[in-house]
Design a protein around this nucleic acid. Sequence first.
DNA 1: ACTTCCATGTAGGAAGCCTACATATAATAT
DNA 2: ATATTATATGTAGGCTTCCTACATGGAAGT
Lengths: 306, 306
Amino acid sequence: MEVRHLDLLREIARRGSLVAVAAAAHRTPSALSQQLRTAERELGVKLVEPVSRGIRLTAAGQLLAEGAEDILQRIAELQARLEESAGSPRGQVRIGTLPSAGEALLPPLFRELAGTAIELDLDDFDLAEEDFAAQTLDADIVIGHSLTDDVPAGASELVSTLLVREPLDIALPEQHPLAERSSLSPEDVSRFTWLGVPQRYPFDSIPVAVEQLTGRSINRAVRLRDNRLVEALVAEGQGIALLPRFTTRPRPGVVLRPLTGVRAERAIVALSRPDRYTRLAVREVTDRLAAIGHQLTEDGKAAEAV
Amino acid sequence: MEVRHLDLLREIARRGSLVAVAAAAHRTPSALSQQLRTAERELGVKLVEPVSRGIRLTAAGQLLAEGAEDILQRIAELQARLEESAGSPRGQVRIGTLPSAGEALLPPLFRELAGTAIELDLDDFDLAEEDFAAQTLDADIVIGHSLTDDVPAGASELVSTLLVREPLDIALPEQHPLAERSSLSPEDVSRFTWLGVPQRYPFDSIPVAVEQLTGRSINRAVRLRDNRLVEALVAEGQGIALLPRFTTRPRPGVVLRPLTGVRAERAIVALSRPDRYTRLAVREVTDRLAAIGHQLTEDGKAAEAV
DNA sequence: ACTTCCATGTAGGAAGCCTACATATAATAT
DNA sequence: ATATTATATGTAGGCTTCCTACATGGAAGT
């Protein structure tokens, strides 16, 4: 019985189709199909059966997939023990990130890891809160965020590390009447036109809360994903918007004012599957991200004091 | 990290040298040496270091070898679960046996297994009691014996299954004066010339016990290993000897008489390493051996009653 | 000094693995 | 109905990997 085959079965169980597994493994479906048949021949059991357009694990395949989960976890633990005892962390760590969080966290990370045996591989995406967890299938570490809690929805099975709690401020054009105030209430902001984000995107929960609190519906001029674009439009006077405090670069024509009276902050977290998190390199990178996040908070406080 | 490499490290830990591992695996030492270097390259750690004429595992190698033990055991368990759920036992089972015990136990076993997917592979040897355990490195099941206990010396870590308790009788020429008695005492037998076995061979413990009990030294004409040869010489009147009751074929000119007053029986046991014993086929064969052994005892009683 | 034992290096053949392309089949769309 | 899409599987060929045979080198024993 080979690890390669166990791994394949586990992936089929998780992802459901050969095409999906092949894409994740950068292989062709044909290769995996052949591997499956080799495994079946060696074990003397049928492992998958056709169903609709795809395949499904047989009882035997499922049994092995479950066992594989355990065995691969133990192999990962052994590897971690080895790395701990015999040297410094090494290898490739694949990070998937929110663009906004990545912009603040990743440049220092690259700087710190220069010269170590850890190699970073990046991917970025902007998703609904509950979709971050699924990305941990592909990435060792997923940097995601949560508006309501410190653990994003769907991440209960994952290792979740809080990196920063980042306030979400109201971005205003410099000449905006509200710009003179040092903080803003839901009442204040509900009267103006907003630049929103798509529905079900995390940031949207805050204007929704404002609407519930004030009983007044907010006028959203547009729904955009990209914060840079939003910044530019705020500067143009197209509306006010929610922007994360640490990752919004100061920009002429735009000021940030804290929003009080609703929970206006996001938790930026690092998520990993337990088996991937056992790798020393993955823990190391997560720890460094947490330290960088902490520094971000400190810098924020210092700037406020000035 | 590949199972193949883990297995290699475990075997090196157990057997001590590449040549020994190569012999057991039917590979050349060169192949293993190259595998080792591939493993070292992949893991980024030195796994072995030269010492005297051979090699020795480094700390890292040892760590992995220990982890391998656990992981390979779990893989074996998974395989067993698969076989249990998905069909009948199959594959090759390698048995190493004492010739005398094998003669009685194996023919029925072959008969029973004809037509199943279990294939037997045999090896035979005649060893000192404490050397049987070492044979479990190579064989799935080792049929050995113990004179003093139901578990042979050195087998405490192994799965040990009692197959038969076989009386060891005194073989006499038909015309021998003692042949008229229905059972013999240490006093009786210590006066005659014996055909013995080499020192430290299990059977030797009984004449030694007789010597201690009677305070008289036994005259051993020769020291032989092969029971057939001993039978032939007993028939020739060259002396009396200890022979196992069930595995001594009745033969004109020779009679067997029970020896009383000392523990004159051997326990025939099947030994397996725990990881090999998890295989369903191995358990199946062990069970069948135990059943055959039980039948042997029953047949013995029936014959006595006649 | 010679032999023995063990590990390692090299070259070449065999086996295995993966990709590209083609085929088959079921579900969905037009 | 027919075409299209999505998924798996089969085939041929190239690349890689693995193992054996043989040679080399060092350490221990005679």
